[in-house]
Structure formats: structure tokens, C-alpha cells
Amino acid sequence: MSTMVLQQVINGIVTGGLYTLIAMGLSQIFGVLGISHFAHGSVVIIAGYLGYTFTRVLGWALFPSVILSIICCTVVGLLMERFAYRPMMTKPQINIFILALGMLFIVDNLAEMIWGPDPLAIQAASNVPIHIGPAVLTTFRLAVVLINFAVLFGLWGLMKFTKLGRSIRAMAQNREAAKILGVNLNQTSALVFGIGSALAGLCGIFYTSMIQIVPSSGGTLVLKGFAVMILVGLGNIPGTIVGGLIMGLVESLGATFISEAFKDSYGFLVLILAMLFKPDGLFNRKTQIKY
């Protein structure tokens, strides 16, 4: 029993890492621009489908395919920011919310038209099982965990020690004050979108390699990303890592000990409970950006 629990914990940590990646981008974008960027899920599936096309259809090597997919996602994110969200920034929030949802649905339908409704997968290179005590993890899954931590550590450093990080934090705390202090709002917004979309691209590649992608995957993942973001509180990078892991573990253990059929519900149940007792998030005293 304890061996099985250990294995499920490892499964949950790996899945939770994916939730962390998507939540991180969402958190940055919401923090800086106040946008509920549901189309972030679209960016995830674009990465997955492009990765699939490059590696499986065109037969390219995995590494350049991944890099190219992430670059494409970054460009898509920048285009969304520049041509969809920026013109809408002065409009009511509900307009932006519907716009984001609309983009998610459009990309979902386009993906189904182009790649079909069936699940597609990228075959991860050198993906062999390795034993960690009684539990098993593939080399690819281990790499995903390590890359996640490295990327998030890098992001934490960027936010904490660079001028761009200070600009982002300034914008998140007070947009007008940041402008007065010389922060280029448009440029910073674009960079936040670019970074967030690159993280979403990485998440899409990992998801398609470890699990499989279907057109509706984007919607499911972005909801979980939002759940993590709300669970831990806005813009808290270490908190987001923990939140993603909580979500992954709750799902994995819930499916093991309660029922696999309700796997997607367990994380949201925890979110609701957390909101009842810590409305500002598990790790925030009040809603603010923390690094």
C-alpha cells in the first residue's frame, strides 16, 4: 500500500508541475494587466499540436521542435496581447473576459479542424523508466520535474533581481505610479505575455509528451491553472509551485482512494475549502504580488 501511495505521490508531483507552469503565466498576466487570460489554454494546445506536427508528421528532432514550438507560442502570446487585449484595455472587464473565452473556443475548434478530435502524443526521446526505491519514474518525467524547477527558479530570479522584474512588480502594484516612474507599460505588458506564453508552450509540450493532447485540453488546463493561482494567491512564485503540487497530489490521491471518475473535481473541492478559510489564498495575507 505504502509503495502504491509513493508511486501516486510521484505521479501527482509530475502532473502538479504542469499545473504550476500554466498557473505561473496566468498569475503574471493577471497581476500586471488584470486580465483573466482564458486563451492561455489555447497557447498550451498550440504548443502541443505544433510539437506533434514537427516531430511526428514532419519527423524533425525533438529538441529543435520544442524550441520552435515555444517560440511560436511566444509569438502567438505577443500577438494576442498587441491585437486582442491592448485595444480592449479601456473597455469593461466583461468584454475582455468574453474575448478571452472566445479565443479559447476558436483555437479549440480550429485545432479540431486541423488535427481532428482524437488524442495525439509526442514520443519523448530516451524515455526509459528509472527506479527510485520502490517507485518508478521515466527519465522524461524526471526531466520535466527538474526543468520545471529550473525554469521557475529562473523566473523567480528574473522577478527579484532584474530591472524587468522590478517593472513588472511595479506595474502589478500600481500601474499609474509605474508609468510616472518611467516604466514602459506597453513593452512590459508584451514581455509579460511573451514570458507567460513561453511557459504555456513548455507546458503544452510536456503535456503532449507525457499524457496526450485533445482540442479541449486547453480549457481543462487553464481552469486548473486559475484554480492554482487563486488557491495560493496572486503572483506568488514559490506559492504557485506548492499550489500546483497540491493540485496534482490531491487529484492523484483522490483518484486512488476515492474514485478515478471524479479526478478533475478533487482539486476544485480543495480550492473551495481553501477559499472558505483563506479567501486571499493560502500564502498571501492580502491580494498582492509577492516574490
Binding site: T3, Q7, N11, P119, I211, I213, V214, E260
Partner: peptide
């Protein structure tokens, strides 16, 4: 006996339970 539904993509939980 473990269950799944059409279009499920993640079977880690079911497989882990049966193997263990």
C-alpha cells in the same frame, strides 16, 4: 477492475493501482 472513459488520456492512477 479499473474504469476509464472515452477520450481519457491519463491512466497513471489506474495502472499504478493494478501493478501494485
Amino acid at each position: 477492475l479499473e474504469n476509464f472513459e472515452a477520450n481519457d488520456t491519463d491512466f497513471n492512477t489506474q495502472v499504478t493501482k493494478l501493478l501494485h
